[in-house]
Write a protein that binds this DNA or RNA. Structure first.
Lengths: 214, 214
DNA sequence: CCATTAATGTACCATTCAGTTAAAATCAAT
DNA sequence: ATTGATTTTAACTGAATGGTACATTAATGG
């Protein structure tokens, strides 16, 4: 018996390995935060090894930064699929709110990553040049709605697109991010199916009334 | 020279020591989160030693739980000072929104602790029997407003106190919790003094319009 | 087919950190 | 005075964890 220390055979596939690591890291970071995440645990979630994490990503913090970037990129590109240009302004606004509300609920891990990044005071986002490029698209849609609404007189001019986006985001984000503390402190019925339908409609109405010209 | 290993004189004051530890821990946990916080660093922030932390609080997680409880207790008691019963319902509602918006801004560490606890999915809040007792008071005020408003016909009956509280909280909380990511992604002008005044007014209007009977 | 570089596997190291131990000193109450 | 609770000091432990060293295999170009 020649003792060949059995070593796995493998194909070279850098992109797949990196994508696999990013996906595993995204889950681990979303679950436990930057400091709570364990590199060994990320490695265990991959088809490869810890060695490769450091080979491709340098260190834990760089990996985290790239996970963040990837998450933003993915979410913004999904949002881009929404076409609102064919609807009257206030209808478009309602559709945007509904979409955002639903989309946030469906992307809890993205919400969690953003929460975590805010606990870190946005330090890593600030270091990422990509973010500044990818995010404005979220504003542009609402700017278009406001511009059309002011032209046809349906939307008031003393409320800015940024403010409307802030209000939509606040409700949609908080609904996911704080449902644990809110549910424990108050009423879990808000987070049942019916409760969520009501909050969704409440958010729509609140945003539309804030935008509508009287 | 007799070498007396100099040792501090001290008063026995268990409560002060515990309060000092809790305050130090609150800062460290708010700054770095549960996993990011360092017990040695908490000790360094106190007038006493790491030994005493374990003497009184057992372990890091128990300390964290008590920090959370203390933070909720403090915030709710500050809120309790607000008296709205003498105002007409919609005026009371406006005052409540303004107060909440301002209060959240003024208590960033509380916001941070709640964010952190939500990253942990509310696990520690759920274990704390105190929370269930201290929080309903926040709802009662708004229930009173709604009851009076339905009696005098100023507030609609198809929107619940919980929903209104959710909307007020969402805007006020998000405004503090997400200002880093939001500011980086979009526009920092929302977080200047003028910007905050506008968001505060936007929130008031949105909530009041959501509540007002047409 | 050989040399070289990129990619991967395995084992290990160094440090950090929550929690402990031990002993003594001091306080407060009886 | 005795006693138990509180506080100080300071070193220590053991596990967890971020990061590396070094060997090995795959692909590539000549």
């Amino acid at each position: 018996m020649t003792e060949t220390p059995t070593r796995k055979k493998w194909k070279q596939d850098p992109e797949a390995v990196q994508a696999n690591i990013l996906a595993a890291a995204a889950e681990e970071f979303a679950e436990h935060g930057l400091t709570g995440a364990r590199v060994d645990e990320i490695a265990a979630r991959t088809r490869t090894s810890k060695r490769m994490i450091y080979y491709y990503f340098g260190d834990k913090e760089s990996l985290y930064r790239q996970v963040l970037e990837e998450a933003y990129r993915k979410v913004r590109s999904e949002e881009a699929a929404l076409d609102l240009t064919s609807l009257p302004p206030l209808d478009a606004l309602r559709k945007l709110v509904e979409f955002t509300f639903d989309h946030h609920r469906a992307n809890e891990n993205f919400i969690r990553l953003v929460m975590i990044e805010n606990v870190h005071k946005g330090k890593h986002l600030a270091e990422s040049p990509l973010i500044a490029r990818v995010n404005p698209s979220a504003i542009e849609r609402i700017e278009d709605i406001c511009a059309r609404g002011q032209k046809d007189g349906s939307i008031r001019s003393d409320v800015s697109p940024h403010e409307l986006h802030w209000l939509i985001s606040a409700a949609s984000f908080f609904n996911v991010s704080n449902r644990f503390s809110f549910g424990i402190s108050f009423n879990k019925t808000l987070f049942t199916h019916d409760g969520q339908q009501k909050l969704r409609e409440l958010t729509c109405k609140a945003v539309i009334e804030a935008a509508r010209k009287p």
